[in-house]
Amino acid sequence: MKLSREEVLNKALLARIGLSDEDVEKFREQLSNILENFTILQEVDTSDVPATAQSVDLKNVMRDDVVMPSSSQEEILMNAPRREDDFFRVKAVLEQEG
C-alpha cells in the first residue's frame, strides 16, 4: 500500500525537512517500497525476546565531574553562519500575534 501524501508531509514536518511536490511523490513511492520489505519481520516470534539497544554490555557509564579545558568561545562561534558579538544570531522565535 502506498503512503498517503498526508503521511509523507507529516513525517517531513516532524523531521523539519522541506519537500517539493516532486519530492513528496518520490518519497511516497520509495518509502512505501522500502517499508513493504520490512513486513518480513512480522514473521518472527519475538514475544519473549528482549530488545538490544547496543551490542556491547556497558551500563551507566559515568566519569568524575572534574574541570577540564574545553573549547574557547571563539572556537565554538567560528563556524556560525550568523553571529552577533558572542551570540549565534537566529530569526525571532516568538512572533507577535497580529
Binding site: N10, K11, L14, F38, L41, Q42, V44, T46, V49, P50, A51, T52, A53
Partner: peptide, 18 residues
C-alpha cells in the same frame, strides 16, 4: 513516530537480539 514505534523500531531491536 507514534503508532509505528512498536511495529518497526522495537521489533527491529528484538530481532537484533536474535
Amino acid at each position: 513516530s507514534a503508532g509505528y514505534y512498536d511495529a518497526y523500531y522495537l521489533k527491529a531491536q528484538k530481532v537484533r537480539t536474535l
